[in-house]
Amino acid sequence: MGKNRTLWLLLAVVVLAVVPLLMGGEFGGADGAAAELIEAENPGFVPWANPLWEPPSGEIESLLFALQAAIGAFVIGYVVGRRHERSKTTQKPEGRAVSDAA
C-alpha cells in the first residue's frame, strides 16, 4: 500500500492547491492582509521598525523563496537517499531484514 498511498496523497495535495485557483481571487498574502487591517483600524499607524534588508524586487524575492525551498528539498532528498542506500547494504550481506525488531 506504501507506494500507492504516496501517489494518492500527492494527488489530494494538488487538488487542494488547484481548486482555490479555479475559484478565483486576488491571492495576496495573509500576512499582508493582517497588516492592512491594523493600518485601516489605527489611522496614522507606522511600524516602529523596518526590515534591515528587503529584496529589491519581486524577482529577487522569488529567487530567495526558491532557494529556501531548494535547500530544504536537497537535504530531504539526501537523507531519503542515504537511508535507502543503507537499508540495502544492511539487508544483503548480513541477511538481516530491516524489520527484524520486536
Binding site: 492547491a17 482555490p20 478565483g24 481571487g25 486576488e26 495573509a30 536537497f74
Partner: peptide, 27 residues
C-alpha cells in the same frame, strides 16, 4: 542526526511554499 536535519529541512521547504486558499488569499 539525519532525521533531525530532514525535520528542519521540511520546515524550510513548507514555509517557502505559498499556496492559494479558498479565501482568495495565499498562505
Amino acid at each position: 542526526r539525519m532525521t533531525l536535519a530532514a525535520s528542519g529541512a521540511f520546515a524550510f521547504v513548507l514555509s517557502a511554499l505559498k499556496i492559494p486558499s479558498v479565501t482568495g488569499s495565499c498562505s
